[in-house]
Amino acid sequence: MHVRELTTDDLDAAWELGRLAFGSDAQRSPHTTVEVPGLTRYGAFDDGGRLVGKAVDLHHDQWWSGRAVAAADVAGVAVAPEARGRGVARALLTALLAGARERGAAISALYPTVAAPYRACGWETGGVLRTVDLATAALPRHRPASHLSVRAGTLADLSAVADLYERVARHRNGMLTRRGELFDFFAADAKLPGDGLTLVEADGDLVGYATWQRGRGYGADSVLTVDEALATTAEAARELVGVLGSWASVAPTVRLCPLDGDAVSTVLPLEAARDHERDLWMHRPVDVARAVSARGWPVHTRGVVDFRLTDPLADWNTGTWRLAVADGTAELTRVDGEADLRLDIRGFALLYAGAARAHAVAQAGLLHHAPAVDPAVLDLLAAGGLAQLLDYF
């Protein structure tokens, strides 16, 4: 098996492999036949030169507590049915990680169709992108605030929308920056997202927005799909939710992805929400030293801990490390010898993403320690808090 970056001559075969793997529509998207900036396509070929597997490295950046961290987010992994179970995906992901590290990536996320092969390659569950349904009539309606104005957005407003998204996302963990070559490429033919864009402004400044798709019909099964609803003030959030609630007579259900603990979610009656879809996402470091130093850390957190890390796919991560956190920054440096704490790369991913504490990681067999050693000292690696994604890729 030979793994290399795909060229434009390989894209027809790559598209067909993806179409078969994911049951895609036979109608091709234009970007599948051309080179796209901001991503790297990898392919695995058998001895006869036939493409038997593919994977894509998306050159994203993710926000981690106020700092943008270079990411290699993985998409489009597919293996021909005749080649499955032969290590094709592992070979692809090994090459992808090496290439991602070479270009400066620090971390990686993906949405698996099946988790086991990615666990075997060092990714571990970081969280769930949850899509919920709410009764539109149950959304609270408030008297409009006198200092706020609501209007339909235009193409000219998209820059302000991107800025507001960044104000919400940048101090969280895991959220995409939505900036860079890849996003610029798809934004070149600028158009409004979905069917509508609703803006809430205060003295001409954008303080909230919602993008939505009207859907079909106006009967009992009609659904208003809200692709995104974000606000930077409680008043703007109430205004947005009130606008969504005004659809109750023709769209009995509103469907959206709530962002934990943000202004809009604190207005929604989420106790009455029904899960429509749950998309598990997984995380892993590409380069652990970069992953630690590039992100932001809580300014009140200080500490030092040594641990031994094992990464079977990325040997540059394997070794004994010292984590030092202070004054909103952190550093991971190599030290000699062994350590009382022995951490698997999947355990590192769980802690880094705030998805588990050290005792739980030890119970999962991803952190080993002597009986007299308290594993909770490695909670220092989890001090940044829980990560969340709002984009599916």
Rank of each mutant, 00 (worst) to 15 (best):
D260E: 04
D260A: 09
D262S: 15
D262E: 15
S265Y: 01
V267W: 00
L268W: 11
L268S: 14
L268T: 15
L268K: 12
A272H: 14
A272K: 13
A272P: 04
H276S: 06
H276W: 04
E277H: 06
R278S: 05
D279S: 08
L280M: 06
H283D: 07
H283V: 13
P285V: 12
V286T: 10
V286D: 05
V286S: 04
D287S: 09
D287K: 10
V288E: 03
R290F: 02
V292P: 11
S293H: 09
A294I: 03
A294D: 15
R295D: 05
G296Y: 04
H300I: 05
H300L: 07
T301A: 12
R302S: 12
G303F: 05
G303A: 08
D306F: 00
F307H: 08
F307Q: 08
R308S: 12
R308Q: 12
L309N: 06
L309D: 06
L309R: 06
T310Y: 02
L313R: 10
A314C: 12
W316N: 07
W316A: 14
N317P: 04
N317S: 05
T318V: 11
T318Q: 13
G319W: 02
T320W: 07
T320C: 12
T320D: 08
R322L: 03
R322M: 03
L323E: 02
L323N: 02
L323M: 03
A324F: 07
V325T: 10
V325R: 03
D327C: 09
T329E: 13
A330G: 13
E331N: 02
T333S: 11
R334N: 02
V335F: 04
V335A: 05
G337Q: 00
G337F: 00
E338I: 10
A339I: 10
A339R: 06
D340Q: 11
D340K: 08
L341A: 00
R342P: 03
L343Y: 04
L343G: 07
D344Q: 00
D344S: 01
D344L: 01
D344Y: 01
I345N: 14
R346L: 12
R346S: 14
R346C: 14
A349F: 01
L350S: 03
L350C: 03
L350N: 01
L351A: 10
Y352L: 13
A353C: 13
A353S: 15
G354H: 01
A355F: 02
A356S: 13
A356L: 05
R357W: 00
A358M: 13
H359P: 12
A360P: 07
A360H: 09
V361P: 08
V361T: 13
A362D: 00
A362Y: 00
Q363I: 03
A364L: 11
G365D: 11
H368T: 12
P371C: 09
P371N: 10
A372R: 13
A372C: 06
D374P: 00
D374Y: 00
P375V: 14
A376L: 07
A376W: 04
V377I: 09
L378H: 15
D379Q: 14
